[in-house]
Design a protein around this nucleic acid. Sequence first.
DNA 1: TCCTAGCACTATAATTTTACGAGTGCTAAT
DNA 2: ATTAGCACTCGTAAAATTATAGTGCTAGGA
Lengths: 332, 332
Amino acid sequence: MLTKRQENILKLIVEHYIKLAKPISSNLICKKLKCSSATVRNEMAVLENMGLLEKTHTSSGRVPSEEGYRYYVDNLMELKKMNAEDMLKLQMIFKNQQLPLADCITRSLQIISDMTSYATMILGSNSHENLLKQIEAIPISDDTIVAIVITDKGHVEHKEMKLENIQLDDIKKTVNLINNLIVGTPIDEVSVKLEYEVKPIIGKYVVQHEQIYNAFYNVFSDFSTKQSDINIVGRNKFLEQPEFSNIDKIKNIFNKLDDRAVLKEIREEDDNNIKIFIGSENNIDDDVTVIKTKFSTGKEEGTLAIVGPKRMDYERVVSLLEFVKENIEKDY
Amino acid sequence: MLTKRQENILKLIVEHYIKLAKPISSNLICKKLKCSSATVRNEMAVLENMGLLEKTHTSSGRVPSEEGYRYYVDNLMELKKMNAEDMLKLQMIFKNQQLPLADCITRSLQIISDMTSYATMILGSNSHENLLKQIEAIPISDDTIVAIVITDKGHVEHKEMKLENIQLDDIKKTVNLINNLIVGTPIDEVSVKLEYEVKPIIGKYVVQHEQIYNAFYNVFSDFSTKQSDINIVGRNKFLEQPEFSNIDKIKNIFNKLDDRAVLKEIREEDDNNIKIFIGSENNIDDDVTVIKTKFSTGKEEGTLAIVGPKRMDYERVVSLLEFVKENIEKDY
DNA sequence: TCCTAGCACTATAATTTTACGAGTGCTAAT
DNA sequence: ATTAGCACTCGTAAAATTATAGTGCTAGGA
């Protein structure tokens, strides 16, 4: 258990380190606290023993350890209100009620990324939660057709299909069949239903059923693997943080950000409130923190995340995220 | 005018530098040529005077200058056939005739990026060349509708519209009107036509015409500004090239790659053959080369580009690009 | 018992020094 | 024209030097 003073010192170190990005000395801290640097040094030694602080070398100042950040986030951080400037910029988006949700989210996160110099992410709802709403097939030329798939959440994917010697009528029949039989099915399960419920029927009534079936099958299997509802804004912001000034770090982070499997884990986490994953708690990088929250309106749900250095302005980011989440849930 | 020997030396220097990424000494070159290093040194001095070679410091080996690369590309490079391995990997894609063009291009460029460690780009046709083919409006809930716009090239965009107290019937009327009146119009001009040809009519027949008109207007204006038919594959490959090992270089390049204005200029260039932009000849970065080609099938056209360090394997890249271009134009 | 002034100590960062090697340019001989 | 040979240059790497910003610890004072 930490004493009040130890907590103060830890808090000051974390907050200074967030601003300065270099080890914090006892001198700096003792100015903010009315006690001598020696006292601070003693306390720092205690905090280091408890694993909350680290040194970069024997005679260096202190840096928060992962557990240090964790303690800060769990116990010391104050959830103050957003600063006025941040507020002003974000409110513009929500005041204008007209915006579709997707646009509103994209813009908010764009603004947040620019203001904070962290990257932001939007993860749409899981594809198994998306139900097939409708499909369309629009002929583009005599051998290609664009298939469009729409889900109940308003998610749209399209894919070209190349078909040879096809009667437009056969396509229409198939589309109608799909729209009648399997609308409402979770996208993940459409392929299966397509095989067992649609294939047998078009086998009887449609001439080139084999070819058409395959084409549609591909469309749907593409859809569920694509999951293109992951959107990262401000990747390049990583290049501005001093802790990521070496290419190998950047390479690792960028590769992780391209890896859907990694990102999906962020979504999987069940908590509906704001959750913070510091360093090794996320699977992106040890020097990275991910702060995320789920939002859910009546109709739609998804995940917002902010990704930046472990040395992140936690208070600010949390308040920003909170604000966006609340406004989304209020307005939509 | 260069002598035969000078050309040989320049060619050898360029090719070695491409492989080794460090200044080339007279010693290395004289081994490939039957003359002494002193002779090579003399010739190198001449080439340097002509501006084709550069030194990194007074006593260093030589590096090709921008003009050196230019001379190499214009006069010395041999357009040999693709190597067997490259060929094998790419042929797999074109043998399988079934693939829609878009997939086929994406995959080729993905493979090329992986093989070469350069980034690749696909730039679709200009939006003013895309004609409106059809629109659809699908209600998702009682106040949101997904509008889908399809062009004759098979390009699809969608956007949510939020509408209040709207009769579905009014939407249908509007959609029909648009599909009847302005299909075939270049996407760029749709907004104008919408105003002068559609607005007056729905003004009479549609109840909430103001709101509906605005919603559709937004959909189209979004479409033409979006131009999301620019696709970059393998951005991260830049991180693997030694010349881009410092963060500021990378920052510049990545910012340029995010700047549509910069990328569009690559498309604007009129030449239908392969074109090479070395260093300052492109507007991405002085250490970058862009190699691009237009392709055009009967129905569609676009631009393929490979973006890598100035020290790029020109012969290989040109042959790869040539191959893809030819196969696209043959098969589609 | 807690606090703190003071001092010895230590690692880093910045600068200088040294040594070496890879390369050039030039000259003189072929 | 070519080339062997040599002096010279610059960059890089390692070692030595200095300065400094920090610590830990001790001993005396509240």
